[in-house]
């Protein structure tokens, strides 16, 4: 219990540091969102509106500390300000729509890649020098070493454009009504298939190699040898002994990967014009949309912290040695 509280305390502290940096960074940069927005309307706004805009964005003449406290209060109440690029939608709404698609896209990519990669890694280590072990790691590392956007663009060109098997972009077709219907779900899956597949292909090799290498180390340990000597079935030795212990480092990796889900699918979303977080971030940068950028950074930070906290909890469940020091 104290362990959980201690970890939670650490994450809250990290979140606060992130919030503070998030507040300071845009204020250290030249230009401000109000001026940017004013410029976007090319003289259609009255000069008096400038002051109103500044106040909307929290850029008052008040001392920095007051601004900081106000900004903290706003974040805590979920008020992330007004988006410039999607004016006048509030940032929280804009991020909300993008978040769903990113979680769907990158979340399923990480889940699929982790599951398949870990299983293949176990297979490669168990039947060492078998064909999985001989061919797959090098093939996947070869694929993974291409620049990701290039891989994605080739996939889009071949399977989307030339062969026409998959749609060229967006999360769902214009003629499908977003509803919890079979037609809509199938359409979403069809749109997500190609981007998810490219992300899985690019990351599979890493999961495979990490699981393979730790499994090989675990297979050489005395307790695995003892399990064999005990006459346990090979399946039990492979799963309860080898996999169960070799999984621990991969779970750490999974936590980090989950944390980067929200920021990391940026390239995918650009190539496949997928309306997720990464796509929004690009829009925000293009339009000097500071509130949106800050909002996205905040969400990414919180996601990384939350994912790490989940990994801590998972470790507590998976590894009795940590459970021990936790109580």
């Amino acid at each position: 219990m104290t362990y959980i509280l201690r970890r939670l305390g650490f994450y809250l502290l990290s979140a606060w540091v992130a919030l503070t940096i998030n507040f300071l960074l845009p204020r250290l940069m030249p230009g401000d969102p109000a001026t940017a927005l004013f410029a976007r309307f090319r003289g259609q706004l009255a000069p008096e509106a400038m002051q109103a805009l500044r106040e909307t964005f929290g850029l008052t003449q008040a001392p920095l500390l007051t601004q900081y406290l106000t900004s903290l209060r706003h974040v805590l109440t979920g008020d992330l300000g007004i988006s410039v690029a999607y004016f006048p939608s509030p940032v929280s709404t804009v991020i909300g729509t993008g978040l769903v698609w990113t979680v769907l896209l990158a979340g399923s990519a990480v889940a699929i890649s982790f599951t398949i990669g870990t299983l293949l890694g176990l297979v490669a280590a168990w039947w060492r020098r078998g064909w999985v072990d001989t061919w797959l790691p090098s093939a996947l590392v070869f694929l993974g070493s291409f620049p990701y956007f290039w891989l994605a663009m080739v996939a889009l060109f071949v399977f989307g454009f030339t062969l026409g098997w998959f749609p060229l972009g967006h999360a769902y077709a214009d003629d499908v009504v977003p509803a919890f219907s079979t037609a809509f779900v199938t359409d979403v899956v069809r749109h997500a298939a190609l981007p998810v597949a490219t992300m899985v292909l690019a990351t599979l090799g890493g999961w495979l190699l990490s699981m393979r290498n730790t499994t090989i180390a675990v297979l050489g340990s005395d307790y695995v040898n003892l399990a064999r000597a005990k006459g346990l079935s090979p399946a039990r030795v492979a799963l309860r002994y080898a996999a169960r212990n070799a999984l621990l480092p991969s779970v750490t990796g999974l936590g980090m990967a989950l944390g980067f889900v929200l920021g990391g699918s940026l390239l995918t979303e650009i190539v496949f014009s997928y309306p997720g977080q990464g796509y929004l971030l690009v829009q925000a940068v293009r339009n000097q949309d500071y509130p949106l950028m800050q909002g996205i950074f905040l969400v990414i930070t919180l996601a990384v912290l939350a994912a790490n906290f989940l990994v801590d909890l998972a470790y507590l469940w998976l590894d009795p040695r940590i459970r021990e020091s936790a109580t």
């Binding site: 307790y223 590894d319 009795p320």
Partner: peptide, 8 residues
């Protein structure tokens, strides 16, 4: 090292 660290 002879006992599995994750089971009793």
């Amino acid at each position: 090292d002879a006992l599995n660290p994750v089971t009793t």
